[in-house]
Each structure stands twice: as structure tokens, then as C-alpha cells.
């Protein structure tokens, strides 16, 4: 056990190439930017103060925010994402983008129901707030560029594991080996997929297979994400799972899919291979110890 912990710790804190942190930070920032752009955040202001329930990070703010404040935060957040992409003060810009995104999402969900649509993005981005990306002209390998993307993977694996763990904890194996999924589909299917949902619900082996596959993927996520060759496979599996949920039940987990891709795609490449062409010539390791990255 101690050996495993030591190996995990060594893998986490090993040096990494300068471009990998930049790639992951930029892609996660783009997911944040896409969420900031594609929502009409002023809808929050249309919700009456009496219907606003603050059980979130913005609980300190009295009442419901006005539309002008929501638009201002949206513009600031999008501008910050642009600065991350342009590599202008990326550390500060990423923090501003994250803070505006978290504030807006907290208000968006301040209606009495816990919303999970954006929670993976907000949580996975958190360790990247502490990252010190390479300044212009800096290249090579360093511990400070190695650990943040791996921390993002660790947090992502934990989140997926917990979604599966809570199913086992509160429902047990009945979540898979009962009519649970069949009833989820019969009661929650959207009109566009009513026929497909009924077909799956009517075939117990298919419904239980879907439930079992989803639960297995969630519980084993940390393993998929720990090993470099299976990270891209996890991204594909997550895409299939979340897309089927959207298709059958109409629940939008696109931010989860994009966040998984933003982290796992660069992290599934060999450490000496940049995602984007350009920095390859300086990808060679210089004057630092060998990476332990899986």
C-alpha cells in the first residue's frame, strides 16, 4: 500500500513539459468561455427574489443579482478567457475566468435544486488556479508544469468515482439489477427518443447493461485516468454515456464531456509530444530528471 502511495506521489510531482500545462489550462478555459457565451445569464435576474434560494458559494450576496451585474461578469469572464488563450497574464486571467464562471453558475442554480451541469468544469479547473504556466520564452521541463494537469486528472477521477459511489451507497446493486433504469427511461424520456427509450426499457438485459456500464465507468474512472493509454478511451466512454443521457432524457452534460476531453486528450499524448504543432522543437527535456508520468 505504501508502495502504491509512493508511486502515485512520484507520478503526481514528477516534472512535466512546459507546453502540457499550457494546453490543458487553455482548453479548460475555452470550456469555461463556451459556457459563459452560450447561456443567457440575465434569466437569473428574472427569477423573483422570493424564489432565489442561496445554498452555494454566493450565499453572501443579498437577494437576486441585477441583469447589468450578470452581463458585466459574463463580459469580464469571456475577456479573461481570451487573455488565457492569448497567454497574457494567464494565471490571473484564468483565476478571473474561473471566479466569474463559478459566481454565475452558483446564481443560476440558486433555485432549490442542486444542478450538476457545470460542477465538473468548476471543480477540475480548481487545481489549475495554483499553476504557474511558463512565461514567454520559457521552455523545458519542471515540477511546476507537471503536477497541475495531473491534479486535474486526479480531481476528475474523484468526481466520477463519487457519482458512482453515491449510487452504490444510496441504492446498492439494485441500481443496476432491478427495473431502476427501465423506470428512469419510461418516466423521463424526452419526446424525440420515446421509441428508443421504450425499446430499451422493455428489454431488461439492455436497461441493466446500460446501468451497469455507467456505474462501472464511474467507479473505475480513477484507474482509466491514471494510465496514459486509457485516458482517451475514458473520454470516448464518457462521451457515449453523457450523449446517451442527453439523447434519451434530455439532460445536458456537454460541459462534462468537453472538460473530460480538455484534460484527457493532451494528457493521453506521450509527454514529449505537444498537442499543438509548434513547440515540438523545444519539447526535448533539458537538465531535469526523467519524468515518471504514466
Amino acid at each position: 500500500m505504501k508502495g502504491i502511495a509512493a508511486r502515485v506521489d512520484a507520478a503526481l510531482t514528477a516534472p512535466g513539459p512546459w507546453y502540457r500545462l499550457r494546453e490543458v489550462q487553455t482548453l479548460v478555459a475555452l470550456v469555461v468561455g463556451w459556457r459563459l457565451i452560450t447561456r443567457d445569464w440575465t434569466r437569473i435576474a428574472d427569477r423573483a427574489p422570493a424564489l432565489t434560494e442561496h445554498r452555494n458559494v454566493m450565499a453572501w450576496y443579498p437577494g437576486a443579482p441585477p441583469a447589468w451585474l450578470l452581463v458585466a461578469l459574463q463580459i469580464i469572464g469571456i475577456g479573461a478567457v481570451a487573455l488565457v488563450v492569448a497567454r497574457r497574464r494567464p494565471r490571473l486571467a484564468f483565476a478571473v475566468a474561473w471566479a466569474t464562471y463559478v459566481a454565475l453558475c452558483a446564481w443560476w442554480g440558486a433555485s432549490g435544486k442542486v444542478m450538476h451541469n457545470d460542477v465538473l468544469t468548476a471543480t477540475v479547473a480548481f487545481p489549475l488556479l495554483f499553476a504557474r504556466p511558463a512565461a514567454r520564452g520559457e521552455t523545458g521541463w519542471a515540477v511546476r508544469w507537471g503536477w497541475p494537469p495531473r491534479a486535474a486528472l486526479a480531481v476528475m477521477g474523484t468526481v466520477y468515482f463519487l457519482t458512482g459511489f453515491q449510487k452504490l451507497r444510496h441504492a446498492g446493486l439494485d441500481w443496476v439489477f432491478s427495473d431502476n433504469m427501465a423506470w428512469v427511461l419510461r418516466q423521463g424520456a424526452v419526446d424525440r427518443a420515446a421509441g428508443l427509450a421504450t425499446f430499451v426499457a422493455d428489454h431488461a438485459w439492455l436497461a441493466q447493461g446500460l446501468a451497469g456500464g455507467a456505474l462501472a465507468l464511474e467507479l473505475t474512472a480513477p484507474l482509466w485516468l491514471a494510465i496514459r493509454p486509457t485516458r482517451a478511451l475514458f473520454a470516448v466512454a464518457a462521451l457515449v454515456m453523457h450523449t446517451s443521457i442527453w439523447l434519451l432524457l434530455g439532460i445536458d452534460y456537454s460541459a462534462w464531456v468537453l472538460t473530460v476531453a480538455a484534460v484527457t486528450v493532451p494528457m493521453s499524448l506521450r509527454a514529449d509530444r505537444p498537442l499543438f504543432p509548434g513547440p515540438r522543437s523545444s519539447a526535448r527535456r533539458e537538465s531535469v530528471p526523467a519524468p515518471v508520468e504514466a
Binding site: R55, N56, V57, A59, V102, C105, A106, G109, V114, M115, H116, V119, A122, T123, F126, P127, A151, A154, V155, T158, V159, L162, T163, F165, Q166, K167, R169, H170, A171, D174, W175, S178, D179, N180, W183, V184, Q187
Partner: peptide
């Protein structure tokens, strides 16, 4: 971060973005 996520999940706290990650975690009938 991992420890906080685990503790929040076990405690059932809901204070977004801290959440206990109960997504479809009950059995439907």
C-alpha cells in the same frame, strides 16, 4: 481537494460548487 470532495460527499453537504454528487442515486420504481 480530493479529501474535501470525499468529505463533502460523505457528509451530504450541498453548497455549490461543493456537492455530494448524488446524480440519479435513488432506485426508481
Amino acid at each position: 481537494t480530493v479529501a474535501v470532495l470525499l468529505l463533502v460527499a460523505l457528509s451530504g453537504l450541498e453548497a455549490w460548487p461543493l456537492t455530494s454528487f448524488r446524480l440519479f442515486s435513488t432506485v426508481r420504481t
